[in-house]
């Protein structure tokens, strides 16, 4: 199986370390050969830095990729933003000799060279492609009795010309991985809609960004689910911290728990909510935490 290095990005290690822990536990349990990627930086964030200056975006992204090239490992991302940024940069540099050469002129100053020898993976498409839902289902020791609102997040599947994971309007691969844990992926309106965080909107226009996430939260509440599952820490933050902000700004309270897929899978593989850092979210929902405890009490 492909050898990987784990690219952490910014939000997971620096705001939601439970997702980092959950990822480590799942990778180990699944016997995936994945090393650290010491010295990696911001991917850099596609919506903002790519907007500002393309050479800067490519220089920082290529440095992160080179660190993994030096180890002869593909890059494993656990964030849609990092996935989009690194794979777009990797594709552009592989396809365009001029860009590669101008980027390498910057990298030369730190004694590095981009070669274009590795691929960028996202943990969801990696698990789907290399394991598949059936194999995941066989490894599950604690089938989850949960109703889940799945949020793919835009950059996992779009732009489709670059991602090539099939339908962007009605994809199913991530739902299949969720259902492999025993959980039910519940349909809801505007399931594929954006959480509103990306493109620098959350950082510069918070209230507008919250109106977008509030729209999704209201539809998800009506679907009567136990939690929201995502594969991107920026969506995760927007849904989690965003609920506190929506409460403060609009007076609306949802209290819907948010899990990264590695945390959902971790539960199904037998790890406790605390080991997976699920209790470290801003949203504290005792009823949900009690429900997660049930299998361990039996």
């Amino acid at each position: 199986m492909t050898k990987l290095s784990l690219f952490l990005g910014c939000i997971i290690p620096n705001r939601y370390p439970g997702i980092e822990k959950a990822t480590n536990l799942c990778l180990e349990k699944l016997d995936i050969d994945c090393s650290n990627l010491p010295g990696a930086s911001c991917c850099p964030a596609p919506g903002v830095f790519r907007s500002f200056d393309k050479p800067t975006w490519l220089a920082l992204a290529s440095r992160n990729i080179v660190l993994s090239e030096e180890m002869g490992r593909d890059v494993l991302t656990i964030c849609n933003g990092c996935y989009g940024s690194l794979s777009d940069a990797n594709n552009e540099l592989k396809d365009n000799a001029e860009l590669k050469s101008s980027t390498n002129a910057h990298l030369e100053k730190i004694g590095k060279e981009y070669r274009g020898s590795v691929n960028i993976r996202h943990i969801v498409e990696f698990l789907y492609g290399e394991f598949g839902p059936e194999m995941i289902r066989e490894i599950v020791v604690n089938p989850l009795n949960l109703r889940v609102a799945l949020h793919y997040g835009c950059h996992l599947v779009k732009p489709s010309a670059d991602r090539q994971h099939g339908s962007v309007e009605r994809p199913v691969f991530f739902d299949e991985l969720v259902e492999a844990t025993g959980a039910e992926s519940v349909d809801y309106p505007d399931k594929m809609a954006c959480c509103g965080a990306g493109g620098g909107v959350r950082s510069a226009l918070l209230e507008k960004s919250l109106e977008m996430v509030n729209h999704k939260l209201s539809l998800i509440r009506d679907a009567n689910v136990d939690c929201i599952v995502n594969a991107c820490p920026f969506c995760h933050l927007q849904f989690d911290e965003g609920q506190a902000e929506v409460k403060e700004k609009f007076g609306l309270e949802y209290n819907i728990p948010i899990l990264h897929y590695t945390q959902l899978l971790g539960l199904a593989l037998g790890f406790s909510p605390e080991e997976l850092g699920i209790d470290l979210n801003v949203v504290k929902n005792d009823e949900f935490m009690g429900k997660l405890k049930e299998p361990w009490q039996e």
Partner: peptide
């Protein structure tokens, strides 16, 4: 600056 880069339009 209001575009969240969701790519629906594209």
């Amino acid at each position: 600056w209001m575009c969240a880069t969701c790519y629906n339009c594209q």
